[in-house]
Nucleic acid binder design. Structure first.
Lengths: 124, 124
DNA sequence: CTGACACCTGGAGTGCGCTCCAGGTCAACT
DNA sequence: AGTTGACCTGGAGCGCACTCCAGGTGTCAG
């Protein structure tokens, strides 16, 4: 069973140490192990969970929804259907976000092309 | 020359009235016309500019960068090259954002599939 | 053993992008 | 003329997601 120091976990998860502590405080991260001296020791499971949190954050899920998801996870197997529903809803939101981003990226490209035409009107 | 009331502009731009006022205050929106009574009157040009602002906001450009862009625009034609550069840089950032979002959406779909497999392990 | 540095806690502070409020004014309708 | 509702200003407040700080403790290389 591989265990990670806080510094290693920062490295691997991409979250800052402060953020990891914050997540623990608000219940996004539960019963992280400690050394006798009180330092955190993260497990592979913790890293996996952090990977999921990163995915949800990167796709714009608000913290309070992630907390609800964490709460469901803590309640065990009978909440799997609820979790699927939550993730499914989020997935729809992400698809909308992707579509908007793609569309606006198109507008941006058009605008750039327009400016370029002004810069070099006779170059085809 | 078509002119729009604040309410119409809210409708068409998708920005709230408070946001329009805020944008004017910080210099993102300049010399909006007024009635003799002091009410704002937006022009087609204003609407076009707001459309560009919306594109930039939707693609995650920070306000202060938009202000820089607005400032360049105010300075006239000799800043077109600078504006192209700014937009080009932003476009690269948007592409990175799209890539990340797509990748994480993939992870999300995998996670959902994984949960579904737990829910109905014998259904293929 | 000592020094350096990583890490701990609770709580305050920050930056962003709005959003709301109080106290008024203007304009259109009846 | 009166009423209603959209709009005005300056400034304060808010929600989010961290981030920083002070003051203290653990760990480990040399």
């Amino acid at each position: 069973m591989i265990r990670y120091t806080p510094a290693e976990t920062v490295q691997r998860s991409g979250f800052s140490l402060d953020t990891l502590r914050y997540y623990e405080r608000i219940g996004l991260l539960e019963h992280v192990d400690r050394t006798t001296g009180g330092r955190r020791v993260f497990s592979d499971d913790d890293l996996g969970w952090l990977g999921l949190l990163r995915c949800l954050r990167d796709t714009g899920m608000p913290i309070n929804v992630m907390c609800r998801f964490a709460e469901l996870t803590r309640q065990g197997d009978e909440t799997v259907a609820d979790r699927v529903e939550l993730l499914e809803q989020h997935s729809v939101a992400v698809e909308a976000q992707l579509e908007l981003l793609l569309r606006q990226h198109g507008h941006l490209r058009e605008k750039i092309a327009h400016y370029r035409a002004i810069l070099a009107p006779d170059v085809c």
